[in-house]
Design a protein around this nucleic acid. Structure first.
Length: 489
RNA sequence: GCGGCCGUCGUCUAGCCUGGAAGGACACUGGCCUUCCGAGCCAGUGAUCCCGGGUUCAAAUCCCGGCGGCCGCACCA
């Protein structure tokens, strides 16, 4: 299979079988970067989130919230997004080309433009060095900042507010009340699944880069002096991480214990959460060898991060960042404390500390793409979607061997008994082989066929998607069989 | 946002250069067949030809603008 064609196959399957589709697609003015999930896509997403809840939220006793998507301007003044979530731009007065101003100055003069440089500073540099449009030589004009947040006007007065560019700000602004009411001590984590919004200049590649997207974020609050006093980490010390630290160009397969000992990871707390997130993706069906935790150097890190590891998965499109694991230090609670005047310190062993934050910020849509691409296999030019059974949108198909009585009634009866507990479909249309193929394509892990023998001895044929092996299961054992087969491994 | 290529049934595409009734394959639906791995035969549904404007007796086709897609630049979960 060609490298590009894997992406095309996923998109084609998604459109044809209802996983996802471009939003507003019947209108010509549909802007890029917005996608709708269809029935199978929603089901897959829900199962993915179920797995996330189980393997991260429940496993680590996190508290889950669901915050508003529109937040006040002050939130983003405090978080730094109003000032820092921007690109400085300028336009050519002649050919209308738009430039990243800081990049243009650096390219023309070799002078490094610091993040904090004002537009006025940059305008001066442009004048001093006589920088003009790189393409036509025209004069540069319209110096401005392009902020990637969507601004919204609230109420009749059109009060300035913003769609959140990351879900985690909801966690930080709710932190104080949750801490006061939920009786937790440091360290503990707050988690959230929800939408975030970024006005990307050029969204592209389907689910990989959207303007409206789902994140599953976890913010771990901890005392920075105690990041190594972390007993929970004992359970993962022997687990092997796939690390690529700064300056390395290959992946080290190394136990958490050794990574800590050699100083590759800054603390037990960080090692523990990196282990949890890697284990999560392994359970989501991504093979270990396609996962890496790559450490970002200063230039690559977000403006709020002091230490950053990206969990990346290798696909036909290269390594894709699925989770940003950032040490945000006291950036967020400190920022909100300063602007709101609300003291954010908490008591920890008799000492007042401002909690630091380590986050696991997961892109859900991207993750689903990687799972789909990884699961997609071509056999005799037919798609077989080998999803882990516990992520399958449809868990079993109930099929009468022949589309006539008494097979149809028997199959319908079994379908009805199963659908109370499982997500199953009934299908009598087309030859049996055609139906097997139809459900292989959307990742149904087992097909249940009602055949001649069913009528004699109350057993059914169970046919496995990945191996096409068939076995006979008694009707009364079917529930237990399915529960077992759909269990998280 | 820029540059290159591109946009036709659900999907893949023919037609565009050289203007003149939108055709095929797969999928889907129904019928015959009565089946354990996309069987065969017959019939059928399904396309504002991305959108808008222009040229023309006539536009899927030529021209202009917009929107979208892919690749590259940049940015990012």
């Amino acid at each position: 299979m060609g490298e590009r064609s894997r992406y095309d196959l996923v998109v084609r399957l998604a459109l044809e079988r209802g996983f996802f589709m471009p939003s507003s697609e019947i209108y010509g003015d549909a802007p890029a970067g917005f996608w709708d999930y269809g029935p199978l896509g929603v089901a897959l997403k829900n199962r993915f989130i179920e797995l996330w809840r189980r393997e991260l939220v429940k496993r680590d006793d996190m508290l889950e919230i669901d915050g508003a998507q529109i937040l006040s301007k002050s939130v983003f003044r405090a978080s730094g997004h109003l000032e820092s979530f921007v690109d400085p731009i300028a336009k050519c007065s002649k050919c209308k080309a738009i430039y990243r101003l800081d990049k243009l100055i650096e390219e023309k003069t070799g002078i490094h433009v610091p993040e904090r440089a004002s537009l006025e500073d940059m305008r001066k540099l442009v004048e001093e060095h006589g920088i003009r449009c790189g393409r036509c030589g025209g004069e540069l004009t319209d110096f401005s900042h392009f902020n990637m947040m969507f601004r919204v006007g609230v109420g009749v007065a059109g009060l300035d507010a913003y769609l959140r560019p990351e879900t985690c700000q909801s966690i930080f602004i709710d932190f104080l009340r949750i801490y006061k009411t939920m009786r937790r001590k440091l360290p503990f984590a707050i988690a959230q699944v929800g939408k975030s919004f970024r006005n990307e200049i050029s969204p592209r590649q389907g689910l990989l880069r959207m303007r409206e997207f789902y994140q599953a974020e976890i913010e771990v609050f901890f005392n920075p002096k105690k990041a190594n006093d972390f007993a929970k980490a004992d359970s993962i010390l022997d687990y092997r991480l796939r690390l690529q630290p700064i300056g390395e160009d290959s992946i080290k397969d190394i136990s958490c214990r050794d990574a800590l000992k050699s100083g590759l990871i800054s603390s037990k707390l960080v090692a523990y959460y990196l282990a949890l997130i890697q284990q999560f993706y392994e359970k989501a069906g991504i093979p270990r060898e396609k996962i890496r935790l790559r450490e970002l150097d200063e230039d690559e890190r977000a403006f709020y991060a002091t230490e950053a590891w990206d969990l990346e998965v290798e696909t036909s499109l290269g390594w894709i960042e699925l989770v940003a694991c950032n040490n945000r230090g006291e950036h967020d609670l400190g920022g909100h404390e300063k602007l709101s005047g609300q003291e954010m310190t908490v008591l920890d062993d008799g000492e007042r500390v401002l909690p630091n934050v380590f986050e696991l910020s997961m892109g859900i849509d991207r993750s689903l793409y990687c799972i789909l691409e990884n699961s997609l296999h071509l056999v005799d030019n037919r798609i077989i979607l080998k999803l882990p059974p516990h992520l399958a949108p449809i868990q079993a198909a109930v099929l009468p061997l022949l589309s006539r009585e008494p097979f149809t009634s028997e199959a319908m009866r079994i379908y009805r008994s199963l659908k109370q507990e499982f997500d199953v479909v009934y299908d009598a249309s087309g030859s049996i082989g055609r139906r097997y193929a139809r459900y292989d394509e959307v990742g149904v892990p087992v097909d249940i066929t009602i055949d001649h023998q069913t009528l004699e001895d109350k057993t059914v044929t169970v046919r496995f998607r990945d191996s096409t092996i068939q076995l006979r299961v008694g009707e009364s054992d079917l529930m237990n069989f399915l529960r077992d087969h759909l269990k998280i491994g």
